[in-house]
Simulated scan of single mutants.
Amino acid sequence: MNEGQCMKCSRNEIKAILSSKQKTMTCYKFTLMLLFSLLGSFFASAQETESSQNYAEIIFLPWTSVESDRTNYCRIFLNYKLIASSKMNEIVRYKIYSKGRMAFNIYFSETERYETILDIEDNKTYYCVLGAPYKKQRNKLVTKSLATDLMDEYTYSRTLKLEEDITKPIGKIPDNVTKSKVGSGTGFLLSDKGYIVTNFHVVDGAETIIVRGINGEYGSSFEASVLSSDYVNDLAILKVNSTLINFPSPPYAIQSSNTVKKGADVFALGYPRKNLMENELKVTDGIIKAKSGYKGSISQFQFSAVVQPSNSGGPLINEAGNIIGVVGSKLNSKLAEEAAYAIKSDYLSFFIDQSEKIEYVPTKNSMEGEKLSEQLEKISKFIYIIETK
């Protein structure tokens, strides 16, 4: 997410942002609006001019009736990703390229928080009041007229202009939005049919997907295609395009995440920072810290094993060598140390079941009774580097 400039906003300027165009306008008013537009202000007329762009805009309007609370902070999340942290006397204008249904969360404190769902469409402006001037609409979308009413009684100190980073999208980025993305992640073999699991965000928007490390051969590369994807749970299944590869059956099984206990030992496998650490598979160990993930998400585990960029899409395994999750994300170290998240294996299994083209899947662990080092040596031949461009 790229933070734009912060600018001082007068009451009249904010009202101009939200008010409809007048059917008639004096030359004086027109000149003022043109001048403000040249200075970078956002007027309704400017929004109409931009209607051909492939993005939407969400305008967050904090409100509080208590003067001392106006400098308190609130945090705004979309799809459980922090997009803004603002004071209760600041407007946030957020330009978003992702489309579709998204989880929307507002946190005023550890105990006071709100959650709802937003449906984002192209070329629309959404208004959300943070606080309680209208009890039925608080912390939800409101009409433009209600937002205008709020401007009549409340003055803001500044506007924060922010924009979604399309190389790290919040949701689904449409095909007609240009992305410059070269990256890598991790994937693991699902069956001897050549199906590979990774994260949706690893391959989202990629024109070309390359798989390396099949049968431990990092010098050979094979193109793959996305067979099925689930951007809500950040999962994707790939299929190697070549018919010349014979995939052996994986030695591990996918174990139900319902059997996993808090405090259980786990191991994260992947290829982090491949440009620095080269092609050898890396293993880090830790424990299950919580059976819920980021902001209480029931689809994730929180675990303590250290993960780095490009670990994404790799398996999280238990002491028996079974897969209990898919490594997905890491919380910013400034907020919390050693907080990593994995999509639970039950959500992966459900995703596989819904993907009709996939012939499943390892259900038996052939490594029972073997030492961890022996298990990892076998497993390593089924964990791959995923490169995208």
Rank of each mutant, 00 (worst) to 15 (best):
A103C: 12
G185I: 11
I14Q: 13
I120L: 03
K95L: 13
F42M: 15
A264H: 14
F267W: 10
Q354A: 08
V240P: 06
E374L: 06
S249L: 10
C27N: 07
E3L: 13
K124I: 05
R158Y: 12
S45V: 11
Y341H: 02
I196A: 02
Q47V: 04
K330V: 09
F222A: 04
Y252D: 00
N2Y: 09
A147N: 01
S228P: 10
L32E: 11
P174L: 04
L276P: 06
C6T: 15
L78H: 09
K29W: 12
T49V: 15
G321H: 01
L39K: 14
V211W: 02
V177R: 10
I317G: 00
K371P: 01
F382D: 00
K168N: 08
L376K: 00
N233H: 03
G286Y: 01
S52F: 13
I385F: 07
R158A: 13
L244S: 13
Y73R: 14
G205S: 15
I352M: 03
S221Y: 06
S10T: 13
Y127W: 04
G313M: 09
T198I: 01
V66H: 02
C6I: 14
T49G: 09
S20A: 14
F301T: 03
D204E: 15
K81M: 07
A84Q: 07
A268L: 02
L38D: 14
K135H: 13
G187L: 06
I196T: 07
K15R: 15
F188L: 00
K193D: 08
Q302R: 01
P362V: 07
I383N: 02
A16W: 04
K124T: 10
M25N: 02
P315W: 03
F301M: 04
F104E: 03
T159Q: 14
F104V: 06
N105W: 12
S249T: 07
L78P: 07
E115W: 10
Y107M: 02
I323F: 01
V182R: 00
Q22W: 09
L335P: 04
R75Y: 10
N215I: 11
E207D: 15
F200N: 15
D122V: 07
I245L: 04
E356N: 14
S220V: 03
Y195C: 09
S221F: 07
L227T: 12
G328M: 11
K23T: 13
G40M: 00
I254T: 05
I323E: 00
L118D: 03
C128H: 03
I287V: 13
G321M: 05
Y294P: 09
I91N: 04
R158G: 09
E57R: 09
K81D: 02
A56G: 13
S221M: 07
T363W: 11
T155N: 14
A224R: 07
G216I: 07
T155E: 15
G194H: 05
A84G: 08
Y107R: 03
Y97F: 15
S297K: 11
I59H: 12
R158I: 08
K262I: 14
N12H: 11
K21F: 09
S366E: 12
I358M: 05
F303K: 08
K172S: 05
